[in-house]
Computed example of a mutant assay.
Amino acid sequence: MASENWSWCRWHHGTVNDPKWRVVASRCVTSVTSVTNVTVGHVVAVWAAMVENASQSPKRGELAGWDDEDVAAGLGFTTEQVRAIREAMQGKTLEGGKLSGWEKRQPKREDSSAGRTKAWRERHRANGDTGDASVTHGDARDDEETHGDHRGEEKREEKEQKKSSSSGDDQRVAAFDARLAEVARDAIETWNESTLVTECGLPSVRAKVGFDKRKEQVRRMLRTARDICQEQLGSSTVTRQFWVGLWKLYAADEFYSGRIPGGKGHENWRPDFESLTQEKCVLRIYDRAAPEAPVAEAQA
C-alpha cells in the first residue's frame, strides 16, 4: 500500500504518441535476446501498467512487486514480450526500478480548488497578513492564474524536452530502418543469385516491389541471424556472407531446396523466400548442419 492515500495518477496528453515507444519497440528487436513481435501498442500498455504500479508503490515512482509474468497475463501478452519491453526501457523511461521524471510529471500537489485555497492562506499567514482569511473571488482567480502560469511553464519545458528527445529518437529509428533495408537487400540479392533459384527452380524475389514486406520477413529472424554470425564469425553483425552461407545450407537439403515434395497433405508445398526466412526454418537447417557450417566458409 502506498504511504500516502493516492487513488489516481496523472496521464499526460501526447503519451500514447510519444516517439520514445517506437525506440523501445525497436530495441526489443535489436537486443541480443530480441522479441520480434513487439509493437508500439505493446509498449504503451506495459508503460501504463508501470505508471499504475509506481503510483501505488510505498515509494511512489518506483516499481514495487512488479512481475513480468503477472503483467503479461493481465494484458494478454507473453512474459517474453513484457520482459523485453521492461529491459528496453532502461535508460529511456526507467532507471533500474524507478520511472524517469516521476517527480516532475507526478508532483505531490493536489489539482483542486481546496488545495489551492489552502496554499493561498498559508502564504498569507507566512507574510503576517492578519486581515480576513477568507478568499475572495478575485483572490481565488489570482491564485488560479498563478497555478496556471506554473503549469504553462511546465508544459513549455516538457515541450522543449520532448522536442529534443524526439529528434534523437527519430534519428535512432531511422538508423535502424536504414540498416534493416541494407540487410534485406543483401538477403534478396544473394537469394536471387543462389542455386536455390538458378538450379532448384525456387521463385526469385523482386528487388523493389513489395520491399517493405521483405524487410519485415528479414526483421523477424534477426535475432537468430545475429546469434549464428556471432557463433560462426565472432561478430553479431549480419553480413552479406551470412545469407550466402544460409542459402547454401538450404540448397544442400533435399526438402528445403524443393527437390522432394512435402509430406502427406503438403505434397504441393514449395519453399520460397518467405518460408525460408522464418526463424523456425533457419534454426532447423542450422541445427542440421555440421559444426563448420558454410556461413563461416563464405566469409573467407
Rank of each mutant, 00 (worst) to 15 (best):
His150Thr: 10
Val218Thr: 08
Ser100Val: 15
Phe255Ile: 06
Arg121Thr: 11
Ala289Ile: 02
Trp66Tyr: 06
Glu231Gln: 13
Thr195Trp: 06
Arg10Leu: 12
Thr78Val: 02
Arg83Ala: 08
Val40Ile: 13
Ala251Ser: 13
Glu158Arg: 14
Lys159Gly: 09
Val244Lys: 10
Glu95Lys: 12
Gly101Asn: 07
Val29Trp: 00
Ser100Gln: 13
Pro107Tyr: 07
Val244Gly: 04
Leu196Gly: 01
Val16Cys: 01
His13Cys: 11
Ala48Ser: 14
His42Asn: 12
Val16Glu: 06
Gly41Ala: 14
Gly97Ile: 08
Thr15Asp: 01
Thr117Phe: 04
Asn37Asp: 13
Glu199Met: 04
Glu62Arg: 06
Arg156Val: 14
Glu145Met: 15
Arg10Thr: 01
Thr130Pro: 09
Val244His: 05
Asp143Tyr: 11
Trp8Leu: 05
Arg226Pro: 10
Thr195Met: 06
Asn268Ile: 10
Pro203Met: 08
Ala84Gly: 03
Thr33Ser: 13
Asn192Gly: 15
Arg179Thr: 08
Ala54Asp: 10
Thr30Met: 00
Gln161Asp: 14
Gly41Asn: 13
Arg116Met: 13
Glu292Met: 07
Arg121His: 08
Pro107Asn: 08
Pro261Cys: 04
Asp169Asn: 13
Arg27His: 04
Asp272Ala: 06
Ala119Val: 15
Ala252Arg: 09
Glu182Gly: 04
Ile260Tyr: 02
Asp227Thr: 15
Ile228Ser: 09
Arg179Lys: 14
Phe273Asn: 02
Ala25Asp: 02
Tyr286Asp: 02
Asp142Ile: 02
